[in-house]
Design a protein around this nucleic acid. Structure first.
Lengths: 213, 213
DNA sequence: CGCTAATCTAGAACAAGTTTCAGACTTGAT
DNA sequence: ATCAAGTCTGAAACTTGTTCTAGATTAGCG
């Protein structure tokens, strides 16, 4: 993997919805085309099928421009994940989980998300592999994904003001979620096993919040 | 990432200690030189510093030969991890953990392993990134690493005949371990946080084995 | 409108993982 | 010792991520 991005602090006004300069309409459109092409290519063939030249061509943008918007393939795929996660959070919100305990609701939500990913396993593969392969230069973006995931889980718990203990449990759940996903994607675990492991880890929630609150 | 290994079933008699044809002495020596060079290069610069041409040169082997022994960079690094894990299991065995409960012993063991990895963070980076980036073609090797890790954890629990519930807890602990490691390696979590998360997830053990057995 | 800085494009060039090939070397069996 | 099959070597070629450059376009501004 030839990789030595020098992310210049000044020149690179990337394209994140926060912090960096606002985009013109055409730029916003380009960004959207790129993300769309990325997701589309990922949906066939997964990580390997997302080839930068193809993404550029599909989205009608020069290669150099693609790299101006997303400084590496990993950045691109992590951004794709942010995009999809946002979408998913919206979807999940519409049908809140029905379980009685927080643990049940979280497990239910995660399995629902899991089944959504199952529908596009190649896309899931590309995004998750990029996420765990990301090095320090992608930390802010990966962090953003992590925050989004945390939000989804806290939502499911129905919790606005978690204790540090609960936050640790949530982090552990996220760890398990990612890692179990990878294990499933590379064919080393069945869906049944993933389900069991998710349910197992969710029991941690009950340990920190025995009666609600 | 240029990657499309066609692992031919017949020609590739790789170099795993199991299954595949036994190696001659010189072959064993080559294999060892390669793994050594790999670990050495990884110890400086991490994943990116392990360049196949350099590994080949360092280990006095032609590039084609390197690829005959390890069909991809990821295979090589996962094998390197197997190697290091074996070593570590030996080391850990010599000083069994001292905690009273199984959970404490597992947490103690994992943190000990963690501190060992801290001493060579680049090496850890290379190995763990390879592990989570591995696709289906590396499944057998990754599975082997997973079994080895499981063995270490069960050892720490002092358990010979785990129940399915306990196995699930162990898997969740492994998930957490890998993912927390990555998070730390990419600078998104402190060691203190890792410690807390490890301790948190280890509480699952007590849930499955309340009094010891 | 006309200027200037920033952005975009096309395309070449470079880096590192992977594959291929012809020829030299080993090994194992006879 | 000799032959066939399998291995190893060195070097070139190929692929795909990434960088670079020169010129065209666009955006904001007077």
């Amino acid at each position: 993997m030839p990789a030595q991005h020098k992310v210049e602090a000044s020149t690179a006004r990337s394209a994140a919805p926060s912090g960096t300069a606002p985009l013109t309409e055409r730029q916003e459109a380009r960004r959207r085309r790129i993300l769309h092409a990325s997701a589309q290519l990922a949906s066939r063939g997964g990580f390997d099928a997302v080839q930068m030249r193809e993404v550029a061509e599909s989205s009608q943008v020069a290669l150099g421009t693609l790299y101006r918007y997303f400084p590496s393939k990993v950045h691109l795929l992590v951004a794709t994940m942010q995009d999809q996660l946002e979408h998913m959070h919206g979807t999940l919100r519409k049908k809140p989980p029905s379980g009685d305990t927080a643990a049940q609701r979280v497990a239910e939500t995660l399995m629902r998300a899991f089944r959504a990913l199952q529908r596009e396993p190649h896309l899931a593969d590309a995004m998750v592999r990029a996420l765990t392969f990301a090095d320090r230069s992608v930390s802010p973006e990966v962090d953003q994904v992590s925050r989004q995931t945390t939000a989804i889980i806290l939502d499911a718990m129905g919790l606005a003001d978690p204790t540090p203990e609960q936050l640790s449990a949530v982090r552990v759940i996220e760890h398990t979620w990612h890692s179990a996903l990878i294990t499933w994607l590379s064919g080393r675990a069945s869906i049944a096993q993933v389900k069991i492991d998710i349910e197992t880890v969710c029991r941690l929630i009950d340990l920190t919040e025995p009666s609600g609150g």
